[in-house]
Structures are given as structure tokens and as C-alpha cells.
Design a protein around this nucleic acid. Structure first.
Lengths: 212, 212
DNA sequence: TAGATTGTTAATCGATTAACAATC
DNA sequence: TAGATTGTTAATCGATTAACAATC
């Protein structure tokens, strides 16, 4: 067990927000920040921020605060943004294409090598310089190009089947946009994007705020 | 204050998952389920499920369990899925188009009436039968068509500006895909989809699992 | 009725906040 | 040095789990 795996998921899920604001501070040329000031930006309490950061070591300095650039770099390392991964997308519809086009994706260290689809109408097309290939060749492609991340942007009915292909091909992590819970072995990392659920939550708060 | 607004956000965010599994059970023709069985499906404990549901009233029956169809319908009402909303999208790139094409969107009661963009190349195009219009006309469109939901699928730098236009035009809720925190008055509901953060979390767990 | 399972209270666990000594 | 702010411990708060009486 390494230190970071002990840190609760609750804490981990706050790290990207810290990273985002620190990146903005760097762009603004600000080099130093206190937990109090970060609190105003992020909406977390200063106490919580200090607790969170101390899970990974003492990045600050008493009487001074935190060095913005150092802290941003450290968080980047913790989040694994310094590691490069190869990825492929199955489902070359709008959502798959949006991801292939997505700039922030490459900034996080992920490179989409290819999209895959079953629809002959889109096979052979290119998004930027990323080709859409036939599903038939996916397994060999993944093995040949050391692809570690599989992205699923298909309807839910084919999602599990695609996850199985990914797993069989040796992929390590799945970014799943299909509204279903994938069954995977313990050593595969799955991160879900639940567009449906997000929308339902919006709907709930609209109703709760205005209908009664 | 109404009853539902007291319920913690933690509970609310679990409701869509219940709703999803109940919908699947209906499709399979299963009419009755116990908290224990729902626990196996969802991964929440039976105790938590009973606690969660009881925030909204006693939907179950001792010795029997829950009626699947009734419970699904009740949760749908709580989530506001029985209410219809008109929506527009600003940012007619792949992501905006994906949303306009997105079937689950209409199922949740949201209808995308139009996309808006500043790029003359896409203005006038249609996604399904949804027209892409010039940003210039957005405010009058929103007012004329009783649009209540504004969706933002632009880069982060224009997101706040678009939120301001939405607010000025009388919109009630914003579904924000831009990686930035919007400043809005208290009576506007914002739900964020953080693609970047989701990806960072995937990256973190990949690193933590394999790198050390 | 007997068995099953909810609704609900009480106990536990974990996360957040408060407080302050350490120290730059 | 004096002032500021972290790192960290202790106190509080909220969420989850356990337990069981109520009841279908």
C-alpha cells in the first residue's frame, strides 16, 4: 500500500478544483497564496484545505502560505498529470468526436489514437487527424499501440460488451459515458460520467425551488 | 420551506441511480423488490436505501418490499421528470450537438429548442430539426419561447458572459459544461458537468494503482 | 398465523470545523 | 523580533450502519 491510496475518495475528488484555481493563479502571475485566500476562491474552508493538502505532505510554510507554482506542480503529480496515456474511443458519434477534439484531454496527458465504430458511414473519416476505424480491428490496435485507456461513448446496450473487449485487450482504465454500471475485474479502473444523473439533479433543484 | 429541500444533497444524488435500476426492473417485468435486492443492484446498503426512501415518505410495505412501478414513478416525480422544460444550448460544437441529439435529454423532460453560436459557418445548420442560430438573437428567443434552461458548451473564457446573458434573459437553471465556476444569483440553479475533473480522477487512480 | 421486510431509533463511523502550538 | 499562517490535535457535525419493534 502506498500513502496516497489511503487518502479518502472525498479528498481526492477535491484535488482537481485546487489544481484548476492554482493554474489560474499562475496565469495571473500570483506566486503565493494562503489557505484563507484559497478558501475564498474554492468555497472550501481554510481548515479543510490545510487538512486536504496535508494528506500528501507539508506543502506550505508557516507565516507565508503556499507557493502557487510548487503546489500546482505537486497536485499535478499526485493526479498523475505528468504521466502520458494512450487512449481510444468506441462510439464515433458527436460525443466521441467531441472528446477526440477536446483540448483539455491532451493537457491531462491523454492522447486519443483512434476512434472505433460499427457504422460503415463513418469508418475512414478523420476527426482532426484521428481516424475512425472499424470495430473489427480494435483488439489488435490496442495491443499494437499500447493503449491503456478505453473510452465508451456508445448507447448503454453495447457498453458492457465494449468494456469486455477493452478488458480482453489489456486496457487498464475505462472512461464510461454510457448510463450503465460496468462489471469489471478489480484491477481495472472505471470512471463514469453520468450525464443523465447530472440532468436529473438539475431537474430536482429546479422543481424544488420553483414548483412548491 | 417544503419537505424535499431539507433532504441532504448526498441523498438527492443517489436518487437517479435508484430511478435507473427501477426503470430497468420495469423493462424486465419485475414488479416487486426488497431493499435487500436493491442493495445488490445498486451497491448501497439495504439500510441506507430504506433511510433514503423514507426521506420522502413510506413507499414500502412491511413484509413485502416496494412496488417497482410505484416507486419508480414516485422517484420520477421527486426528481421533477414529470415537468417539461424548454432549453437552449450555447456552443454548437461537437458537445453542443451531442446534447441536441441526446435522447435521454428529452426523456428527462427537457426539450432543446435551438442552438446558438457566433461562428457564421455553423449558423443556419440544423441538428435533427434543431436550428443553429446567431447569438445576436438569443435574448429575444429565450423570452419569446419561455426557455427556462440554458446549457453552456463553450470554452471556459466565454462561459461567464453567456451565464450573464442567460440570467438577464430570465432563465432559471444552467447546465454548465465549461470548466469554470459560474457566478450567479441565489435563485438560479447551476449544475456543472466537470469532464476535466472526471478525467483527472481517472488519471489519479491509474497512477495510484499501477505506478508505485 | 408465521414469516418477511419495512420504518425508525440508536450506535458507529467518517468527515468537517475549530483551536492553537509550532515555526517561518 | 512580531506577525502571520501552517500543521495537527481535539471537538463537532453529519452520514452510514445496525438493530429491532411495528406491521403487512
Amino acid at each position: 500500500m502506498n500513502r496516497e491510496s489511503q487518502v479518502s475518495v472525498t479528498v481526492i475528488r477535491r484535488l482537481p478544483k485546487y489544481h484548476r484555481y492554482l493554474t489560474e493563479l499562475i496565469e495571473k502571475g500570483i506566486s503565493r497564496i494562503s489557505s484563507q485566500e484559497l478558501s475564498v476562491l474554492t468555497g472550501f474552508t481554510a481548515s479543510q484545505i490545510r487538512q486536504d493538502l496535508n494528506n500528501f505532505g507539508g506543502f506550505g510554510q508557516q507565516g507565508y502560505g503556499y507557493n502557487v507554482e510548487d503546489l500546482q506542480k505537486e497536485l499535478g503529480k499526485i493526479l498523475g498529470l505528468d504521466t502520458r496515456y494512450n487512449a481510444v474511443v468506441v462510439g464515433a458519434g458527436n460525443l466521441g468526436q467531441a472528446i477526440a477534439n477536446y483540448k483539455g484531454f491532451e493537457d491531462a496527458g491523454f492522447k486519443v489514437l483512434s476512434l472505433f465504430d460499427r457504422n460503415p458511414r463513418v469508418i475512414g473519416l478523420k476527426i482532426r487527424d484521428i481516424e475512425i476505424r472499424d470495430m473489427e480491428h480494435i483488439e489488435e490496435f490496442i495491443k499494437e499501440h499500447n493503449v491503456e485507456i478505453g473510452i465508451i461513448t456508445t448507447p448503454k446496450d453495447s457498453a458492457q460488451q465494449i468494456a469486455d473487449i477493452y478488458i480482453r485487450s489489456g486496457i487498464k482504465g475505462i472512461w464510461n459515458f454510457a448510463p450503465t454500471d460496468l462489471q469489471v475485474p478489480d484491477d481495472i479502473v472505471v470512471e463514469n460520467v453520468r450525464l443523465n444523473e447530472s440532468l436529473f439533479i438539475l431537474s430536482y433543484f429546479l422543481k424544488t425551488k420553483f414548483d412548491k
